[in-house]
Design a protein around this nucleic acid. Structure first.
Lengths: 241, 241
DNA sequence: TCAATTACTTGATATAGGTCAAGTAATCAT
DNA sequence: ATGATTACTTGACCTATATCAAGTAATTGA
């Protein structure tokens, strides 16, 4: 797909809104955007990052996919779920570390070659700092995942996932139950049973909409990082003191 | 502890050898080292990174500790094991994300304040790139952990851990079984039983020394990233083609 | 719009690894 | 050197979640 001038403007605006490009001027960004490639993937496609694609930085313009690791038996873990505005860059990883992208919806991603990214890092100090922040956020997210996956019971995992939708006020499960279950390292059956348990506590999920009896039923499943974005954070109603 | 001039030289040499300071000249490093603080912790101590210590970059000069997350029930996960030459920096994390350092041995750490690190990043582009590589390595290590913890059986986890000691040719378990078990997300009892299983396959662990009957018994537990450092990598003896 | 596919639920059953207990071996501190 | 503490092992038992199966509900695509 060759971007038309019109598209180009749209993409430019989109990228300007990304936290990776925070603090970069319009003109500076333009140079970078010139070298951007656009790629579309189809629902159901599975792509492994090979030695070549390892060098890239990817930003999701539209769509949905999961980053997974598969083992010989065919079992998989979901490392992260990526949709609009998500970014991923295996460029600093070992070329022998292979992860897989499984596309859940038709997806459009922008990608920048490793050499362009490095050039941009060298030239624009802000961008370098943004990359640092992006990687640090990834580290923190993975640490929190590790904690959730290892320490929490099925019900706690689901509660923890749902509380995010309360905090960001959508009160909506953003993806299918099966996908969320996989992300939480559990089977759809267990997810379903966990929801049944939560229902007894006043948490109802009905066509992806979360309904709470009193409003605070999910608070016990909250962590401090997520909680710090909550309107009740550290009020007397909040469990985090 | 106030470093004497002599100590200072020793520390300077130590830091010059760290990959975080690769490409930094002696003189440049000196400036940075001036502002370094030294802290000693005792075996058994437990320290939480508070808002203040969050801003720091830590490098382990000597000793051993584990970075853990604890939950209300008192269960813990080991996010990483840190010993000589290891580094950790929560400085880019949410101030609400609290991890805990549990000291296994008496430990000496150097730390640099967040503002010094930022100043150094601004000034020395190589350092900024080193930080990027350091964070990316952390991301990759956490992804591999996630995979090991979720996808592997007890025996596979232990085999995977042991194969590293084969690859780096020490043939030695670097830490206590209990600590390694915790890192692998399992109980000491399960670790012990997994070792018993491996013994049947010709893998013997005797006072921390790994003995193999034929030499290739651990290969089936190897991953490609670890394997890429193996002397047999991608020869006909290697499972990775 | 309707058949086909995929998503979800619920029950019965299996199992890996956790827990508890009791013992031995190794290490530490005085 | 020795008593105390901690590390490790082994067996019996338990439990949370996976698996299997069979069904219903929802979504998709021609």
């Amino acid at each position: 797909m060759i971007p038309t001038k019109n598209h180009f403007k749209k993409y430019h605006a989109f990228l300007a809104g990304q936290s990776l490009f925070k603090g970069i001027s319009e003109d500076e960004l333009s140079v970078f955007v010139q070298s951007m490639k656009i790629k579309q993937y189809h629902k159901g496609e599975m792509v492994t990052f090979d030695d070549h694609s390892h060098a890239n930085l990817y930003i999701v313009y539209e769509g949905l996919f999961k980053l997974t690791k598969l083992d010989e038996k065919g079992d998989e873990i979901v490392l992260s779920i990526l949709d609009k505005n998500s970014a991923v860059t295996p460029m600093y990883f070992s070329p022998h570390y292979d992860v897989c992208a499984e596309f859940v919806k038709n997806t459009t991603v922008f990608h920048f070659s490793g050499s362009d990214v490095r050039r941009f890092i060298d030239k624009y100090h802000v961008f370098s700092n943004n990359i640092i922040q992006f990687l640090a956020d990834s580290v923190q997210a993975l640490m929190i995942s590790a904690e959730v996956l290892q320490l929490k019971t099925a019900k706690e995992k689901v509660g923890w996932y749902l509380v995010h939708a309360k905090i960001n006020n959508t009160f909506e499960l953003p993806y299918s139950k099966t996908l969320v279950a996989a992300y939480l390292g559990m089977k759809p059956e267990s997810f379903s049973r966990a929801l049944a348990e939560l229902k007894k506590e006043g948490v109802v999920l009905e066509n992806k909409k979360i309904k709470l009896e009193n409003g605070n039923e999910l608070c016990k499943y909250c962590d401090r990082v997520a909680g710090s974005s909550c309107s009740l954070f550290q009020t007397e109603k909040c469990i985090h003191n």
